[in-house]
């Protein structure tokens, strides 16, 4: 990951501006410098904030007319299991008025209680349910935090890195003993079965 830059670039000259600079400036005004990190990559801005400031910052991003991020685009997590705060919760917000896009990121562990943005953006309700379903993110203040994509009685959270996703072993001629159960194994490929026994 690129090293985070402390200040947000403003539009200058003939270079097209970085997307999301308005959010970076607003967050820099609101929060002390050690709480907010700004990452600029591929001309897009990601602003890292602590989880305690999430509601405050998002409310300001939505309501402040200089930022006016009124459209919730998406919300997701990424899982970095080697870190203490393994989840990186990302909220992508769009400003139609200013034609701007920003990613707001919050680091959380499995036990961190992340406040729900469903009160600010009704569209985030389903996205938060999906993060809960696929990652097991704990979200508080959500009107209906239940599984949305998987059956209600599913165990586990598939998009975590330690969840092994596996449907069925694929049976080739060289691995019939391993892939198929005894009654499914065909009788007519003696060479293949013999070959796989030799390898093991």
């Amino acid at each position: 990951m690129a090293t985070p830059t402390p200040a947000a670039p403003s539009p200058e000259g003939n270079q097209s501006p970085t997307e999301g600079w308005r959010a970076a400036e607003l967050v820099a005004r609101m929060l002390p410098a050690d709480e907010a990190e700004v990452l600029v990559q591929n001309r897009q801005t990601t602003v890292f904030i602590p989880v305690e400031r999430l509601l405050q910052v998002v409310q300001a991003l939505r309501d402040d007319p200089s930022a006016a991020y009124e459209m919730p685009v998406t919300m997701t997590c990424s899982d970095w299991p080697e870190r203490d705060l393994r989840f990186e919760v990302m909220y992508v917000l769009r400003s139609l008025v200013h034609n701007d896009l920003v990613t707001l990121a919050v680091r959380a562990s499995e036990e961190t209680e992340v406040p729900s943005l469903a009160g600010l953006y009704p569209g985030m309700e389903w996205h938060e349910r999906e993060c809960f379903d696929l990652f097991g993110l704990r979200i508080v203040g959500h009107p209906n935090l239940t599984r949305i994509l998987l059956p209600d009685d599913w165990e586990g959270h598939p998009l975590r890195k330690d969840y092994v996703s596996f449907g069925e072993p694929v049976a080739f001629t060289h691995n019939l003993e391993w892939a198929l159960s005894p009654q499914d194994r065909p009788e007519y490929l003696p060479g293949a079965i013999r070959g796989s026994v030799e390898r093991s």
């Binding site: 459209m71 919730p72 685009v73 953006y121 009704p122």
Partner: peptide, 8 residues
């Protein structure tokens, strides 16, 4: 306004 707030 509702459409925008739902992310449509």
């Amino acid at each position: 306004a509702t459409a925008i707030s739902y992310g449509c």
